[in-house]
């Protein structure tokens, strides 16, 4: 059963190949790691995190601003999105009533009758 092809209508895929690839990658990583420097010492400057040449802050750098560029580019979309997500229960029901109307309108106009 292992290695049986997963055949979809216009293609196929072998889940096992990913496992094999993962094993090969792990072996390569292990080889690279084992050729590492022998001069490693704990507690010296070597273990300090590299922080763009500057001094790393005491606490961790949090990746919460990782996608800053994305938010900056999509600013207008997010402004609209936040306006939509007010968190007020009235608006939840309002959007539900709108959905009923939209579904009915689409079905009627779409030639369901």
């Amino acid at each position: 059963m292992i290695g049986r092809l997963f055949i979809t209508q216009s293609g196929m895929w072998n889940p096992l190949s990913f496992v094999v690839a993962a094993v090969i990658i792990l072996v390569i990583v292990y080889i690279i790691r084992s050729t590492g420097t022998k001069k490693y010492k704990k507690g010296t400057e070597q273990t300090v995190a590299f922080f763009s040449g500057g001094k790393a802050p005491e606490e961790n750098v949090h990746p919460e601003n990782l996608y800053w560029g994305f938010f900056e580019a999509m600013k207008r979309y997010y402004k609209w999105l936040m306006k939509f997500h007010t968190g007020i229960v009235n608006d939840y029901v309002y959007s539900f009533v709108l959905l009923v109307v939209v579904v009915a309108a689409v079905l009627l106009l779409g030639g369901a009758v």
Partner: peptide
């Protein structure tokens, strides 16, 4: 029309 009205309410 009635079926469509019922379906839109059920589905929503």
């Amino acid at each position: 029309f009635l079926d469509v009205a019922a379906l839109s309410m059920l589905a929503s």
